[in-house]
Simulated assay, not measured.
Amino acid sequence: MPGRPPRRRLSPEERRRQIVAAAKALFSGEGIEHVSMRKIAKEVGITQAAIYQHFENKEAILFVIIEDFFSDLLEALSRAIESEAQPLERLRRAMRAYIDYGLSHPEAYRLVFMTPMSGLVRAGMAVPRTEEAKARPSKGSLAFGVLDGAVREAVNRGMTRHGDTDLLAEAIWAGGHGIVSLMITHNEFPWTDPEGLIDLEIDLLFRGLLHEGCPMRSKMFPTV
């Protein structure tokens, strides 16, 4: 139209980011199972054929969303532990950073951790102990590796009452996920003291983690 500047053509990378942003909003608002590639294309303002030039299917878009989430989470975890050498304190800081990040990104957390997804997407989130994840670690693998590495060091130093590092890492992650998912799902519940609840949850996990004779137990819990 006369007087209207020509519309700038987006680069492939810009278009991909636009598609991912639209899909993320639709997935969060309507649920993954109710969102089609056609609906995403319509939201972006392109044809269904055009969207397949950038992503082969819905799961490919999901994988990008997941990798972006874990990339930011990994950065938050790395900042939290970068100046700490003691494995238990690193673990505590990592747990707190994980919980804080999840609570500050509730929609993304709900999408990544609280939505059923297919095996293809889950494969991209494999923990570092699998051979495939070791060879080609995803951001999810690297993020879990921060927790897993601190747990393994604590076990190797004889600090824990259990020696199964895989089981311990999963149990600690489950504890952190539990409080994040509960507080996201029931965000209107009149929690007595949200910050105190998080600190107490972490303390309870650590009291169960450390064996009675561990010197760090008395340092972390002087009244126990």
Rank of each mutant, 00 (worst) to 15 (best):
A41V: 13
A126P: 01
T115F: 07
R129Q: 14
F63Y: 13
V64D: 01
K39A: 15
L77I: 02
S83V: 10
L111Y: 09
I51W: 09
F63S: 04
K139H: 08
A126T: 06
A41G: 12
G149I: 01
L62F: 13
S104E: 14
R161N: 11
L147V: 14
I66S: 07
L142K: 13
Q48S: 13
F70I: 10
F113W: 11
L147A: 08
A49F: 03
V64H: 02
D100A: 14
E132Y: 13
D72G: 07
R93Q: 10
H105P: 07
A76H: 10
E131K: 12
N57Q: 05
L62H: 08
A60Q: 04
A41T: 12
A108Q: 11
I51K: 09
E67K: 03
E132Q: 14
K42S: 08
F69I: 03
S83T: 15
E89R: 15
V121F: 01
I81R: 04
L77D: 02
S138Y: 02
R79N: 12
D72M: 06
A49L: 00
A80L: 07
Y52G: 04
D148S: 14
F144A: 07
L62Y: 11
P128L: 09
E59H: 07
H54V: 07
V64N: 02
E131G: 06
R90T: 09
D72P: 01
V151A: 08
P137G: 05
E67N: 11
F63G: 03
S141G: 15
E84S: 08
